[in-house]
Structure formats: C-alpha cells, structure tokens
C-alpha cells in the first residue's frame, strides 16, 4: 500500500514537472493569463458590490460574508481551470483521435493517468485571488475564524474539490459515447455559476437541487459557513459523505465506459 502511494506520488510529481515545462514553452499565455485573473477578480467584486448597494443582505448573508462565498467561488474556478479542464480537454482529444489506446496500455491505473495528467499553473493566479478575497473579507468582518472552522474548512474544501472532480468526470466520460462533449461541459459551467452566491439566496426548490442533485452548495456555501463559524457537524459530515458518494459513482461510471469502449469500438 505504502509502495503504491509512493509510486503514484512520484508519477504525479513527474506530471507536475511536465506540465510546468510545457507551460514555460508558452510564456505569453502565462503572463496574459495572470493579468486576466486580476481583472476577472475586479469584475466579480463589482458584480456583488452593485447588488449590495441596493440591498443589505442576500438571504442571511451580509456583503463581506457573501464575499467569502465569492472568494471560494473564484478559488474553485481557478482550481477547475488549473487541475480539471486541461485533463478533460486531453481526454476528449484522446477519444477523438484514438490515442486513448496508449493510456489504456500503460501498467498504471487509467483513471489516474487520464485525469490528473496535466496542470495549468497559469491559473494559480485565480486561486490566489480567491484566497486573497477571503482573507480580506474576514478582515473586514473583524472575525477570526474559530479553530474548528479552520480545521473543517480544509476538510470541506477537499470534499468540494472531490465533488467537482466527480461531476466533471461523469461529464467527460460521456465522450465515450458522444465523442465531442464540449457543449455539455459548457452547460455545467453555467450551473457552476450558481455557486457565486450563497445557496440561501435561491428559492427552496433550487436550493435542494443545488444541494443534493448537483451538489454545488458544498463547493462554496458550506466551506464559507465553516469559516464564519456557522457550520454544524451534521452538515460538515454530509459534505464528506456527498464527496465519497460522488467519487464512487463517477469512478464506477468511468469504468463502465471503459468496458463499453473495449467491447463496442473498432
């Protein structure tokens, strides 16, 4: 077991080095992306600021509390762009051109090899911007997060990342049947946009959907509540539970798709 973890750890380290080397090949993209990250942050902030000019609260959330949610949204947006999107694009390309064969013939777990292969470091800027916004919002709220909040924050953010990974894995796996799923992925992007504001801002029905069907609530709202010291242990464990379930479902679907691929393709 320890040996397996070390082996996959070494492989991931190599993936990171490869990704960085590729990125350094394209300097202009790296620089322009970092500038873009800052301007995006500005526009996002302007968006909620305009809202709070007219209203004091969204649901039970004040301006700077909602800014924590927005910070998490920006952070995870960067995480998707940095860690998930390049791999999704690569998988679709593998399926379209048939180079998935090389992935399947390696003596390494195909899901690992296909889904964590590439990282786009240029999007780390967005993740930093998100973190910065969270820190600034806490400062404005003059609130030090409780120890329990900080500890649970990390667990909840990990759960959020796993949930995102699972949603995106299910979508990209559809490519085994439909080949080009870029549009389906764009559709989900627009659903993810809902994570920009706390879920309580939505009507009940939407809130239930965003909690249990497409669990966006666990990505931004729940970790934010942890930081603000409002999360209940029940909800925190629900988040971890949802993460486990999503991962199991998406991995199962991926394996099913691979079996389909080897029995149906030519």
């Amino acid at each position: 077991m320890v040996e397996v973890v070390r082996r996959y750890g070494r492989l991931w380290w190599l993936f990171l080095l490869n990704s960085l080397a590729v990125e350094l090949e394209y300097r202009a993209a790296m620089i322009s992306e970092s500038v873009l990250a800052l301007s995006r942050l500005g526009w996002q902030l302007a968006g909620i600021w305009v809202f709070f000019v007219h209203r004091e609260r969204i649901g039970t959330w004040t301006l700077w509390e909602a800014a924590v949610v927005l910070g998490l949204f920006i952070f995870f947006d960067g995480l998707i762009e940095a860690f998930f999107r390049p791999n999704m694009e690569a998988i679709i390309e593998h399926i379209r051109t048939g180079t998935l064969d090389f992935v399947l013939l390696k003596p390494v777990d195909a899901q690992f090899l296909a889904t964590v292969r590439w990282v786009r470091f240029r999007h780390f800027g967005d993740m930093l911007a998100g973190m910065g916004l969270i820190a600034y919002a806490l400062l404005r709220l003059r609130r030090t997060p409780p120890l329990w909040g900080l500890v649970s924050l990390w667990a909840l953010m990990l759960a959020a990342a796993v949930i995102l990974y699972s949603i995106l894995l299910v979508l990209v796996t559809l490519a085994f049947w439909f080949v080009d799923v870029t549009n389906i992925i764009e559709l989900v992007w627009s659903v993810y946009e809902a994570g920009r504001v706390p879920v309580d801002a939505f009507p009940d029905v939407v809130r239930v959907v965003l909690t249990f069907i497409i669990p966006i609530a666990f990505i931004t709202t729940v970790p934010a509540e942890a930081l603000l010291g409002r999360v209940t242990p029940t909800f925190a464990s629900l988040s971890l539970f949802m993460a486990t379930i999503s991962l199991a479902i998406s991995t199962g679907f991926w394996r099913y798709a691979l079996r389909h691929y080897t029995s149906a393709s030519s």
Binding site: N18, E25, L113
Partner: peptide
Amino acid sequence: LVMGQKNQLIWDLPAADTFLLNKEIYE
C-alpha cells in the same frame, strides 16, 4: 503497441521527457 499514425510522445516537450515518464510508469 506502436501505431505509425498515432503519437504517444508529449508534443510540446523533448522526447527525453516521455522516456523519463515511461521509466517511472514501467518501473
């Protein structure tokens, strides 16, 4: 399996990088 029409080499990097990766993959 070698396919004349398909590449496993990493497009943007020198082949030596793919070699090193395969070294790790095949232990």
